[in-house]
């Protein structure tokens, strides 16, 4: 019962992050920031759904398979966003910066 509730709420969190990531891809200004939004969408949404499924199935071989899938996903998921970002960096694209007087940092 509790496992079912945790599983479904994790899947709902995954849906939420997927929607937010797509909104971010639409409203962010340049390629790097859009890439950040899409990477958030991809990793966190998919991870949440995988962990939620691990809570929903009964404890057994399927749980182990889901854990292995999650670990492989942890290894392979960042590669695509890294390659896109590296290509943009090699093409000497200048990243978008906030205007100087709007920055909130203390250097």
């Amino acid at each position: 019962m509790i496992a079912t509730i945790i599983g479904w709420s994790l899947i709902c969190v995954g849906i939420l992050f997927g929607v937010v990531g797509n909104v971010g891809v639409l409203i962010f200004p340049d390629v790097y920031t859009r890439l950040q939004a899409s990477a958030t969408c991809a990793t966190t949404a998919t991870l949440s759904v995988i962990i939620g499924c691990a809570f929903l199935v009964e404890l057994g071989p399927m749980t182990g398979k889901l854990i292995v899938i999650g670990l492989f996903f942890l290894v392979s998921s960042p590669v695509s966003s890294h390659i896109i970002g590296r290509y943009a960096w090699k093409r000497e694209m200048v990243p978008w910066r906030r205007a100087w007087d709007e920055r909130g940092d203390v250097e």
Partner: peptide, 12 residues
């Protein structure tokens, strides 16, 4: 890979 996996940072 971990830096890229964490949302908000991407290793270029």
């Amino acid at each position: 890979t971990s830096i890229t996996l964490t949302p908000g940072t991407i290793t270029l």
